[in-house]
Design a protein around this nucleic acid. Sequence first.
DNA 1: TCCATTGACGTTTTT
DNA 2: CGTCAATGGA
Length: 729
Amino acid sequence: MDVSHLLNQLNDAQREAVTTQSKHTLVLAGAGSGKTRVLIHRLAWLIQVEHVSPLSILAVTFTNKAAGEMRERAQDLLKVSTRPLWIGTFHGIAHRLLRMHWQEAGLNENFQILDSDDQHRVLRRLIKEEGMDENQWPARQAQWYINARKDEGQRPPSIEHMDHPITAQWVRIYELYEAYCNRAGLVDFAELLLRAHELWLHNPSLLEHYRNRLGHLLVDEFQDTNSIQYAWIRMLAGDSGSVLVVGDDDQSIYGWRGAQVANVQHFRRDFADVQTLKLEQNYRSTGTILEGANALIANNEDRMGKKLWTAGEMGQPITLYSAFNEQDEARFVVEQIEQWLGKGRRAEEVAIVYRTTAQSRLFEEYLLKASIAYRVYGGLRFFERAEIKDALAYLRLIQNPNDDAAIERVINTPNRGIGQKTLAVLRLQARASSLPLWQAAQECIRQNLLPPRALAAIHAFMQMITDMRERMGDWTLGNQMQGVIEDSQLVSHYEKEPREKMESRVENLRELVNAADAFILPAEDEEAGMSELQSFLSHAALEAGETQGEAWDDCVQLMTLHSAKGLEFPLVFIAGMEDGLFPHKRSVTEAGGRLEEERRLCYVGMTRAREQLCLSYAEIRRMYGSESHSRPSRFLDEIPSELIREVRPRMQVQRPWVGPKAPVYKQATSRINQGWPFQLGESVNHRKFGAGTVVSFEGSGEHARVQVNFHQAGAKWLVLAYANLERAG
DNA sequence: TCCATTGACGTTTTT
DNA sequence: CGTCAATGGA
């Protein structure tokens, strides 16, 4: 068979990875080196050349987006349906396994997925109910503790805590939480993975079945795997399976949530006959950007070692702007974007990235002022919105009345006169009898344990849910959704809120009905024995939707460094490069390689840029209400200075006598600059003073003056009309 | 039950 | 400085 279509667009290293004959392969793929391409071509190679059945291939990713992209690109390349292929996220695949084998996994047939918001609520309540001090045992920390244990594969009994009263208490919370979830048929994200692992661990014949079936495993972003994911892969591979993992130890930025970079090393140790390949040719960035990134990351110890190179040009120097304060920084960045747009480039080619989410605000403000469209990544997603979760909770109850988290959410939403007091009795009853709330409520009614008014309210609520289930059983999903929203009177409940909020909520509910209407039960969910409703609810939890639905048009992208991973843009700004902010001070003080992870984060950020990288920091930043001075980020010192062009040499260091800084910069807004022969930051030449950088403007018309910071002569104010400045080449 | 005021807190986030 | 949640008064 002619395989040239699979190989002729690949470089040597990529080709070697795609055609590898080793049993196991570790592909260390640098940023922009074509790792997804390798993964997809390997997939095609296995099927078309090695005639591996598509049924025996499992490809795992971390995000739904990556999984979707992989399926789509594989489809394009293979020109046949990718339906039989198992492509999905770790969580998605674990979920599917658990649906298919819910009995063996010890689960309720109608188990529901608990998202992290649900999980938090549940824990907060359990801790309160247990009479523990919420300040001493915060739900956030409990959540973190439990998830971390699950990520390590640990159940309460296996945790050593004899001599640690504090650990013992966390374990106690873990136990309570576990019992609660089991009663209510709830499974959180970490539990999906742990259960899937235990499913095989406790059912050898089932494991054997999957080992026989899935002989070829492909794993993306391997450096992000946690312990349980790694154990899961190892278990599935067994002695016979063949595994190819792709990852980049230099891009490991999720250590703080359990990712083990060490898995990359362990892979070579734990699997026999591992061929390690490096993809170092970069197809994305200019030589300058790569050199800078290489130099930076070289400061990390414990690397597997990689050096990106490009056959392309060196390109422009990395620019560095030292802003007076965060306002000045935002102003500068937006001004640069205006220039970019002025050159006829597109806004969508530009990304502003930063360390903390709070930093987006100022940029938004300035972009708004400049009428430049933008889109902020992150934030609340569609299925995480309160009104959506409320409506879904009713559906969840139709599906499984024992879903305590759903009951708690909507039993008094909208208000039905079931207040905290009534609820407390129900919870007490539930705890005392180890029953789900629904059954405890039935018990309360039977035994008259509450005042008549409360009993009537509870009864009415339960009747409503039961009616919904009976009446809507055979309705379409969209009609069920609509029916639930109507019967629950959620809309009139939200109508009491302030108009703007209310309108968006009602609009979102309408959108939810549309989504339910448009939902088609995926074939693989059907195969796993899921109903349409079950599938819809699971999808809502597992893929909460795009971060921001609209605005796919031409707009500037704002995001944290973390969410920038995997993306690329011609022009990238990394803002807030100050010690304490980036690297963040909490990672500097904490031990355990946190600083190295910050450096990798910087590396990730830099390697997002294709043509131009622009770094900036503010000497003074207003944070938490007070002003703080900080040193420029230490990472800036790690980038060779010959690669950097300082847009504005720090004049207050060179020329302390120049005077008050603030008014000087304040005038240099984009509006005033329009029609000026020079841009702020532009390099100019003067016949007498030599080379310098335009630093500020003042006045207009024939009185217009420009401040230039000359490399030799220092800062000077010049009247434009007489100065005879030339643009530097 | 609802709204307003007060107080603590302030990396990074997908599933 | 802003946000969010908890508290307390009407």
